[in-house]
Amino acid sequence: MNAARKQRLLIVLMILLGASVAVGLTAYALSQNINLFYSPSEIHSGMAPKDTRIRAGGMVVEGSIRRDTNSLKVEFDITDYAQSTTVQYVGILPDLFREGQGIVAQGMLNEEGKLIASEVLAKHDENYMPPEIAEALAKAGKMPGMPAAAKEY
């Protein structure tokens, strides 16, 4: 093999090695960091794993918000109108969090089936329903009223 070829081979091998390391790391990181979405019904039926970070979403049940009086701890229920799940969160809720609003919470289920959330997301539009929730509601057969997109004006 002449020098130029040897060099080219080295470069190709380097690229291959780099690419396979990158693919390996990517696959590993992906498998560690994927958060699956579960609806309250799925959580109720025990489909959701404990001690793994998951996402759960639904509508905040009217009158279910309970605040701690001397900290930022708050508990509320989310529902897909078939089942509901209690979410516990410490911190500041997003601006658009309110009763009857669709939210997504990220966290882990504890032994009692309560979601200990590390993050609560409400999207920045009052008519908007997260697609996960819309689908979960549709599955539970409880899609309320008209779809969000239709009430544009």
């Binding site: 958060n35 996402r55 689908e135």
Partner: peptide, 14 residues
């Protein structure tokens, strides 16, 4: 195949 989200840890790690 399900609704998933890929979190910031994935991106940071790589």
């Amino acid at each position: 195949l399900g609704k998933i989200s890929v979190g910031p840890p994935y991106f940071n790690a790589l």
